[in-house]
Simulated assay, not measured.
Amino acid sequence: MKRAVTMVTTLFLLAVAALVAAQPASAGSTCAFPLCSQTINDNAKGVPGFIVQRDWCGNDANTREVEDMRCPTPSPRRLLSSGESTALDQDWDAVKFPAGCYGYFHAVNWLGGADRNYPVDRRRSPNRTTLWFRVHNDEVAHVTMRCS
């Protein structure tokens, strides 16, 4: 019995590894569930929401943040209200921290990679510009944000 459980577990882990290896290096609008990014708005109730975007349009697929997010073709955006999260079967790749806002971006890598933790403060020069954070397909991003 123990051997059968070990074999099933090994096959499952190999299947997950194959799915991970099949994911493109650059983010896009599509993903293969369960390998979709997710963003959670951890703001307290009553705090205004923030914008998430379907596609990551940074210059480098590995970039964690960019100030300018101009996509060659328009990418869907939506407001993520307090306590709300993006759907697990959809790929939302970017979180917008507008100028004048501050908060925290915490991306948890659920496949065992390194987590990313960034305090964000866009209230003062020279940082008084919009900043976009990328959420990779193997991450769940917890975001808190307040704007002045």
Rank of each mutant, 00 (worst) to 15 (best):
T30S: 02
L19F: 01
L19R: 11
L19Q: 09
Q38E: 14
N41Q: 02
C31E: 02
N43M: 09
V16K: 10
C36H: 01
F33E: 14
V20C: 06
L13T: 06
A27H: 11
V20R: 10
C31V: 06
G46K: 00
D42E: 15
T30I: 09
I40Q: 12
S37I: 00
L19G: 09
S37G: 02
P48G: 08
A21W: 13
V16I: 06
C36S: 01
P24H: 02
T30A: 04
K45D: 15
A18N: 06
F12T: 10
F12E: 10
T10V: 07
C31L: 09
G46A: 04
Q38S: 12
L19Y: 03
A21N: 12
T39D: 11
A27D: 14
S37W: 06
T10P: 00
N41T: 00
N43R: 07
A18M: 10
G46Q: 05
A32T: 12
S26E: 15
V16H: 09
A18I: 00
D42S: 15
T30D: 10
A21S: 13
T30C: 03
S26T: 14
F33K: 11
N43D: 13
L14F: 09
N41H: 01
I40F: 05
T39I: 12
T39Y: 10
A22I: 07
